[in-house]
């Protein structure tokens, strides 16, 4: 039991890490990037390619991958999101969904149906574990992933609250026009936010490949995990995303304990339950309902 909870928390760290970029983009750009999972898998293939052909460790590969993805994020905002946002708030959903279909199938075309893993390029770390009290063992990769998630989410939170650029990004998210009046370059702020959001996917790509295998079409499932962690934790809250990831993993673990095929079902049900709670039991909503019953509100 304790062991399962410990494993679930470690897995939750992975979900928080893959949700990081999605959550950041949602909170400061109000955009859900449907190509998020596909970009994650793209990063995984990039690191695998470096390891397979040049024996580059994924940790070294990240030094190239993160800037590359940040560049892709910048271009994504400049050429796709900024353009499609002019056609209303729904168009970016369609644009990024189209992009994900193109990316997934290009990856399949290039790398075929074989599943890939980064485990061969990280030596002993792939199977080493730490021993916790009570005889619980947690994998080194998992612990590293959890730490990476905490550092990344905390770093982004600090960046948004303490730095000038972070404040400019938040101001643009609140109201781009007003931000413009006080001298903030909204276009630049959005492009930087997008570069950070997509760049951070690279770290999640490394975790994806180190802890398990992936294939070209793995992006959809990863997008849903990231989305669920974001929503469970409360959309727009970075620390909430960490909690969301852990709750998602705990629900999946509970699901698996109840039924052999219950792992994913448990996660999806937790997502729906959280939505349910959000709709019907929010403090504001609840008092509003009371007032309505009392005839004080319409």
């Amino acid at each position: 039991m304790l062991n399962q909870i410990a494993q679930a928390i470690v897995l939750g760290g992975y979900y928080a890490l893959i949700a990081c970029g999605l959550s950041f983009m949602l909170s400061v750009m109000r955009v859900i990037n449907l190509a998020h999972g596909s970009l994650l898998v793209l990063g995984g293939y990039f690191l695998w390619y470096l390891g397979e052909n040049y024996e580059v460790s994924p940790f070294v590969g990240l030094l190239a991958l993160v800037p590359l993805l940040a560049l892709i994020g910048w271009a994504l905002q400049r050429f796709l999101l900024a353009r499609s946002a002019r056609g209303g708030e729904l168009l970016p959903i369609l644009t990024t969904f189209g992009l994900s279909i193109v990316l997934d199938n290009l990856l399949f075309e290039q790398f075929g149906a074989d599943t890939r893993s980064l485990a061969p390029y990280i030596g002993d770390m792939a199977w080493d574990s730490y021993e916790l009290p009570a005889g619980i063992f947690v994998g080194k990769v998992g612990v590293l992933t959890l730490v990476a998630a905490i550092v990344l989410l905390g770093g982004l939170q600090l960046f948004l609250s303490r730095t000038g650029t972070g404040k400019a990004i938040r101001a643009t998210a609140e109201d781009a026009d007003t931000a413009g009046i006080v001298g903030i370059d909204a276009r630049k702020a959005s492009a930087i936010a997008s570069a950070i959001a997509v760049g951070s996917i690279g770290i999640a790509s490394a975790a994806l490949g180190m802890r398990a295998t992936f294939d070209a079409y793995a992006g959809g499932a990863q997008l849903l995990f990231a989305f669920e962690a974001t929503i469970i934790g409360g959309a727009g809250s970075l620390w909430g995303t960490l909690i969301g990831g852990i709750v998602l993993a705990l629900a999946q673990t509970a699901g698996a304990a109840i039924h052999p095929q219950g792992f994913l079902i448990g996660g999806h049900l937790a997502f729906i339950l959280v939505l349910f709670a959000r709709f019907f039991f929010l403090p504001g909503e609840f008092t509003y309902r009371l007032r309505r019953i009392a005839g004080l509100a319409k």
Partner: peptide, 8 residues
């Protein structure tokens, strides 16, 4: 709303 409905 919006994207949350879409992926939900």
């Amino acid at each position: 709303k919006g994207g949350e409905f879409a992926i939900g």
